[in-house]
């Protein structure tokens, strides 16, 4: 079984699990069909489709050697994982540190991660970028457009 088959089975399992959860939903007195009516249709349909995907994958793989992964270019997955990690930290820190501090830290971290600075001088680029991003977005959004940005509950800044 290939990648598609596994994905298909995962979706199948998820839709069946959610389908079971819909069975507990109580009908509403004001609507002829309850809140579970439409979800059950969607989940049943998705379950059938994902089963079909898994079956098609098994059939396609039978009698055929699984092709070896022939990616000529090596993809930099660790960088992707770290980038996601840094972004996740940023999101988690936002309500605590506030927009300005968290954004500054995030842009420094993320930019220097994507293009590692060389030597002490190399750090000036990400630092300037981070400062500019933070100050400009803050001024434009909060001061000019009155779009509120998160405030830190630890820092009140």
């Amino acid at each position: 079984m290939g990648r598609d088959g596994i994905a298909g089975l995962a979706v199948l399992a998820a839709s069946l699990a959610l389908f079971v959860l819909t069975l507990d939903l109580k009908d509403s007195p004001l609507v002829p069909v309850g809140p579970g009516f439409y979800p059950r249709i969607v989940l049943a349909l998705t379950a059938v489709l994902s089963l079909g995907l898994a079956v098609a994958d098994v059939l396609a793989h039978r009698g055929r050697r699984p092709a070896p992964a022939a990616d000529a270019t090596k993809l930099n997955y660790p960088l992707v994982a770290i980038s996601f990690g840094v972004f996740a930290l940023y999101v988690v820190a936002l309500p605590w540190l506030g927009f300005r501090i968290a954004t500054f830290a995030y842009v420094v971290a993320s930019s220097s991660l994507l293009a590692p600075p060389r030597g002490a001088k190399g750090w000036s680029a990400p630092l300037i970028l981070a400062l500019a991003t933070t100050v400009v977005t803050w001024l434009v959004f909060e001061r000019w457009l009155s779009v509120l940005l998160p405030r830190g509950s630890w820092t009140d800044f």
Binding site: P35, Y38, P39
Partner: peptide, 24 residues
């Protein structure tokens, strides 16, 4: 089609759009 189905599943989570009853 599975992608489309997954998209629809996202919208059934949380609450129903008619009465706001909690579900899933």
């Amino acid at each position: 089609l599975v992608s489309g189905g997954l998209g629809l599943i996202v919208t059934i989570l949380g609450s129903d759009p008619v009465m706001g009853q909690k579900r899933l």
